[in-house]
Computed example of a mutant assay.
Amino acid sequence: MAGVTDVVFRQICKELGADVMVTEFVSAEGIMQADDRTRKYTEFTDGQRPVGVQLFGADGERMGEAARKIVDWKRPDFIDINYGCPVNKVVSKNGGSSLLKDCPLLESVARGVAKACEGVVPVTAKIRIGWDEKSINAVEVSRRLEDCGMQAISIHGRTRSQGYGGEACWETIDACARAVRVPVIGNGDIASGADVARRKSGTAVSGVMIGRAAMQNPWVFREAKHFLKTGELLPPVPLAERWELVMRHCRLASESRRYGNERHAIMAMRSRLMAYCKGFPGAKELRQRLARVESVAQVEEIAAWSMAAA
């Protein structure tokens, strides 16, 4: 979710019912070097609490120091360690899911961060179920992380080699939840309130995490809460309401310090806009137009054209 769950998007998700959120992951080395660009990724508002800052790296001592710096700057509600990212540029630096292949190093990182944050904020971890189908070790990793002081574990039900293809293995997530005493949060293929209810009732998880589905449909949090409370599906969000949120997101992004100016903000939003518009009438032409936008006004013009054509 790097490049997605920035401070603006988290504000929107919170308003729509998200309970607990995590920042985009940040490099421990970037934090240690006091890189201003890296620090921007840790921004959040008090209205978004409870919120955690997610770190990645492969040196336990340096990760611990970076975590304490973040705690001193930001006072997040928890620190989350990323052992799940499958992206090559992270894995090649021995970060993210690469640590699933090296349990002693994974433990060293966990212990380093837990020690640095002891008595200050909780530390949690996010993992995948293994490196590939021949090395699914999430139960062992979960036990090790619990022993290292992790106070909750989030598990994405795919291996690193799967990326985001195939189906998430909730049987493995369930086995992990039954193997440890700390809360386990399941993640993978959650796109509706019915999905949340099915996984909560059919496994031993303490919670469910929604990721990529929110990129297209941030209303999923509202829908999930309504379904859990009533067992009923909410009606589809009208096109006008969807465009209203899209335009608000663009305005908030253009006002954010994150991007510097409106043009940079809207250009950075292009992929987000195309995700929002999946399933919209005339989606193919919409994507072609949105791929070139550089201003809020252009997005507003496209929205007006879209609603008139629907």
Rank of each mutant, 00 (worst) to 15 (best):
D132Y: 06
L99I: 07
G119Y: 03
L99G: 05
A125S: 07
G130C: 08
G112V: 01
L100G: 00
K93M: 13
I129R: 05
I129Y: 05
P86G: 10
P86M: 00
T124L: 07
S92T: 04
E133G: 09
L105V: 13
P122N: 14
V90C: 10
S92L: 08
A116G: 14
T124Q: 07
K115Y: 09
L99P: 01
S97T: 00
G96P: 05
S98H: 00
V121E: 12
N88R: 13
C117W: 03
G119W: 07
L106I: 04
S92E: 13
V109I: 12
D102T: 07
S97D: 01
V113A: 06
K93W: 05
G95D: 10
E107G: 15
P122S: 11
E118C: 10
N94A: 14
G119E: 10
V123Y: 09
S92H: 01
N94G: 07
P122T: 11
K134G: 08
L100I: 10
R128C: 03
V91P: 01
S97L: 11
L105T: 14
W131E: 14
K93G: 09
V109R: 12
V120E: 15
K101I: 02
D102W: 05
N94W: 11
L99N: 08
C117T: 04
A114F: 05
V87T: 14
K126Q: 05
L106R: 01
E118D: 15
K134N: 14
V123S: 01
E107I: 13
A110G: 04
G96S: 13
S92W: 02
T124A: 10
P86Q: 04
A116L: 10
E133D: 15
L106Q: 02
K101G: 14
V120D: 13
L106Y: 00
V87I: 14
K89C: 14
P86H: 02
A116C: 13
G119N: 12
E107F: 05
V113I: 09
I129Q: 03
E118L: 08
W131I: 14
V91C: 07
K126H: 07
P86D: 08
P104I: 12
R128T: 03
K101S: 15
L106H: 02
P104F: 06
R111E: 13
C103D: 08
L99Y: 00
L99C: 04
I129K: 08
A114E: 01
S97V: 00
A114L: 03
L99H: 03
S108E: 12
L100P: 01
P104R: 09
C103G: 13
G112N: 12
V123A: 00
C103A: 15
G119C: 10
A114G: 06
P86V: 06
R128W: 06
